[in-house]
Simulated scan of single mutants.
Amino acid sequence: MRRLWQFVQTVLGIIFRHPVLGTSIIPRLPDGTIVLVRRRDNGKWALPGGMVDWGEDIPTALRRELAEETGLELVETTRLVGIYSSPDRDPRIHSICVAIAADVRGKMQIHDTLEIMDVRAFELTDLPLGHLSHDHEQQLLDYLNGTTRVA
């Protein structure tokens, strides 16, 4: 019985004590503006993105999250901006975020109104730096500076 309990504890530890994988998209429209969303939970601007679902790869998660949160279509991923893994980067859970820059197109429209309350395109000189959720400011700065970060 003790060995069974140890096995159960090990399995639960594997499931519940490991970070989850998520994505952030730095979406650039054809006019060069960057699209951000305003989160309903904290009212801050953020990059579109979210958790990778079970059975889903990162490119599929990028397309799904972008469409749900902005209504936009991913045309092409342009570069890996970074992998962000600090345990305190997301106040809700320990998550590892893969940030990808992408060219996008379409009409902005929120489909996930439970999570997102606004979507807007910003000129590079008008980004709300200092008022972004999670570690999205670092992700945006890495993108703007041409840096690829593993942190």
Rank of each mutant, 00 (worst) to 15 (best):
L12D: 05
G13H: 13
G13A: 04
G13F: 14
I14C: 01
F16G: 01
R17P: 00
L21Y: 11
I25Y: 02
I26R: 07
P27S: 03
P27Q: 07
P30V: 00
D31L: 01
G32H: 04
T33P: 10
T33C: 11
V35E: 02
V35L: 00
V37T: 13
R38V: 03
R40H: 14
D41K: 06
D41Y: 14
A46C: 11
A46P: 10
P48I: 00
P48Q: 01
G49V: 06
M51Y: 12
M51N: 12
M51L: 14
V52G: 02
V52H: 06
D53R: 15
W54L: 09
W54C: 00
G55S: 00
E56W: 09
D57F: 03
I58D: 05
T60D: 06
A61G: 03
R63D: 10
R63F: 04
R63N: 04
R64E: 08
A67L: 07
G71R: 08
G71Y: 10
L72W: 02
E73F: 05
E73I: 10
L74P: 05
E76P: 02
E76A: 03
T77C: 01
L80K: 06
V81I: 11
G82K: 02
I83M: 01
Y84W: 13
R89S: 12
R89Q: 10
D90N: 11
D90W: 14
P91T: 14
P91Q: 13
P91C: 07
R92S: 11
R92L: 12
R92C: 01
I93H: 15
S95D: 14
S95R: 13
I96F: 04
C97A: 05
V98L: 05
A101Y: 08
A102Q: 08
R105V: 07
K107W: 05
M108Q: 11
M108A: 05
Q109W: 10
Q109A: 07
Q109Y: 05
I110A: 03
H111D: 02
H111R: 13
D112M: 00
D112W: 01
T113V: 11
E115S: 14
E115P: 02
E115I: 09
E115V: 12
I116L: 03
I116M: 03
M117S: 13
M117D: 12
M117P: 04
V119D: 11
V119L: 06
F122P: 08
F122R: 02
F122Y: 06
L124S: 07
D126N: 09
L127T: 09
L127E: 09
L127V: 01
G130M: 07
G130H: 12
L132G: 06
S133C: 01
H134F: 13
H136P: 00
E137L: 06
E137C: 09
E137V: 12
Q138I: 13
Q139M: 14
Q139Y: 10
L140F: 07
L141A: 00
N145K: 13
G146N: 14
T147W: 09
R149E: 04
R149K: 11
V150Q: 04
V150I: 12
